[in-house]
């Protein structure tokens, strides 16, 4: 089932056209990854999808009552606003203590409810953001560069958490990331952006695509191999759902 579909979506930011003619969709339960160089319009597309940016032309169609859990790129907490984790989780909607405890556990950070937000480490902070998104009981989880500021093992662990969440809750996931090889391993489908959709498909298809290699080179090929699934990939543009995410 289609959760969200864009048709001919063109988005402007600060008077500049950042994305042209984007046709994309996300189905229930799949993990889609947006990759692309800096300034390629990844975050802009996310803004368009969550409704923070009005389309210049084209449309964004969402399933009626689609619940989006959004984990932003960064959340600047400078200590001026006193905020415990529990209070943060209740913005903008209140949740029961049990629900909060469950979400924190699902996100991998139990027992943090009473901690001040600014006392959290980078990894804890991202997981608390994830817990907040999970409290919305999302059909679609959107993560915009959610592992910025995490080191490589931290990012890999975070994506493993996402894979677990998808497995347990069955929500679709849209990820934006620079950590190409880590992310791509966990994805069902990859969209490569550079002002428009240059190529898309399964991780294998995209990494072999000339458009992708023109943007990112072929230097990371070796790293991909480590994370590649033990699947027989059909090298076409269909997507399939992995039941297991084995990153060993």
């Amino acid at each position: 089932m289609r959760l969200i579909t864009t048709t001919g979506l063109t988005l402007k930011q600060a008077g500049k056209t950042v994305l042209r003619d984007v046709d994309m969709h996300i189905d229930r339960g799949e993990i889609v990854t947006l990759v692309g160089p800096n300034g390629s319009g990844k975050s802009t597309l996310v803004k368009g999808l969550i409704g923070a940016l009005k389309p210049e032309s084209g449309t964004v169609d969402t399933l009626h009552n689609l619940r989006i859990g959004y984990v932003p790129q960064t959340l600047h907490m400078d200590g001026l606003l006193p905020l415990t984790v529990a209070r943060f989780l209740c913005l903008p909607h209140r949740h029961s203590k049990d629900a909060m405890a469950r979400a924190l556990t699902e996100a991998g950070v139990p027992n943090l409810a009473g901690t001040q937000m600014r006392a959290l480490s980078g990894g804890q902070f991202q997981r608390v953001l994830l817990a907040r998104a999970l409290l919305m009981a999302p059909d679609l989880l959107i993560l915009d560069e959610a592992t910025q500021g995490l080191d490589q093992p931290g990012a890999a662990a975070f994506y493993q958490q996402i894979a677990n969440v998808r497995r347990d809750l069955g929500c679709a996931v849209l990820m934006v990331s620079h950590d190409l090889h880590v992310v791509m391993a966990a994805s069902d489908r990859v969209l490569c952006l550079n002002g428009h959709v240059c190529c898309e498909g399964t991780p294998d298809v995209v990494q072999d695509a000339p458009e992708y290699q023109a943007l990112f080179g072929t230097g990371t090929q070796g790293a991909f191999a480590i994370y590649r699934h033990d699947h027989d990939h059909a090298h076409d543009h269909t997507h399939h759902h992995h039941d297991e995410h084995d990153h060993a």
Partner: peptide, 13 residues
């Protein structure tokens, strides 16, 4: 409060 934290976070809610 939500809008104060982050505009996009608010918009998604």
């Amino acid at each position: 409060l939500t809008a104060t934290l982050n505009p996009d976070l608010a918009q998604a809610s």
